[in-house]
């Protein structure tokens, strides 16, 4: 069941990349509804006339059934206002929205998680679930430089069997784009990916060439988040234009018409 409720900001930590790891708890003290990895929330930013619509943000993690963890990159007026909020601020959040990653029947599977920039966020909870389900998880994180990946790889370390890092300038881990990591040559049963669109398209090409099942998480602009405004559509091979907010944001690459 979707909810719209007030949350209290309980933690707001800046990472070297400038992204913020923000934690919220429901103001009414209630437990959070079940949230699947890859689902998102719509956050209302009150302090700016330029941020009229809610901001869709992927859920990074849920802790202790009450703590919502969001990984926020200040890239526009709304997200800038959001990350500047002091602790104990009250923020209205709609959740949980969309369909997350499919992670059932993963026992014994060798899976690869590929994250880039702020796109690494929803993969944390996914990594946790897959590991709990018995999958052998390799995580590949990409960024421009050390700043982008610092403090991100540690989020996966408790759950993943391997965490690989690639940076464009080689300041941390492998030098080059994430898809040039040697780890990509191994066999995987599934690939999950979230990050900038060019990165996701590159990963999708590799998955398609090797005939590996692959899901990606899209970030189309949206207004409502609940399938009413029809602004966030993606063209699918099976059903034409569908709402990313309700059919996605996670899609199997086979459905993405324009990605062929």
């Amino acid at each position: 069941m979707k909810q719209v409720k007030d949350f209290i900001l309980t933690g707001n930590r800046t990472l070297p990349s400038g992204c913020h790891l923000m934690t919220f708890v429901p103001a009414d003290g209630a437990k959070l509804p079940a949230i699947e990895p890859g689902q998102f929330v719509q956050v209302k930013v009150d302090n700016s006339p330029k941020a009229f619509l809610r901001r869709p943000i992927s859920v990074c993690d849920v802790r202790y059934e009450t703590e919502l963890v969001l990984f926020v990159k200040p890239q526009g007026e709304g997200t800038r206002c959001l990350v500047e909020l002091p602790e104990n601020s009250v923020v209205n959040i709609m959740l949980p929205l969309g369909r997350g990653f499919s992670c059932d029947e993963c026992n014994g599977h060798k899976v690869l998680l590929v994250g880039g920039g702020v796109g690494a966020a929803p993969l944390v909870a996914l990594c946790k679930n897959l590991a709990a389900g018995g999958a052998d998880v390799t995580v590949a994180i990409g960024g421009r430089s050390r700043r982008d990946v610092a403090g991100v790889d540690v989020l996966y370390k408790p759950y993943a069997s391997k965490v690989l890092v690639a940076t464009d300038d080689g300041s941390c881990g492998h030098k080059g784009v994430v898809t040039s990591l040697p780890g990509f040559d191994e066999h995987y049963d599934r690939i999950y990916c979230c990050g900038p669109t060019p990165m996701m398209k590159a990963v999708a090409r590799i998955a398609r060439a090797k005939d590996i099942w692959c899901q990606v998480s899209l970030e189309n602009h949206m207004a409502c988040g609940i399938g009413a405004c029809l602004c966030c559509v993606e063209n699918t091979s099976d059903r034409g234009n569908v709402c990313v907010c309700t059919e996605g944001p996670v899609f199997n690459i086979n459905r993405l018409q324009s990605w062929e």
């Binding site: 009229f52 619509l53 602009h221 949206m222 207004a223 405004c229 029809l230 602004c231 559509v233 993606e234």
Partner: peptide, 21 residues
């Protein structure tokens, strides 16, 4: 309807170009 992008946020408003999907 129309191809994406169909939405742009504006000060105290938004512009849509859904195209009657």
């Amino acid at each position: 309807g129309n191809p994406a992008p169909r939405l742009v946020e504006t000060p105290s408003g938004m512009i849509n170009a859904v195209g009657l999907q």
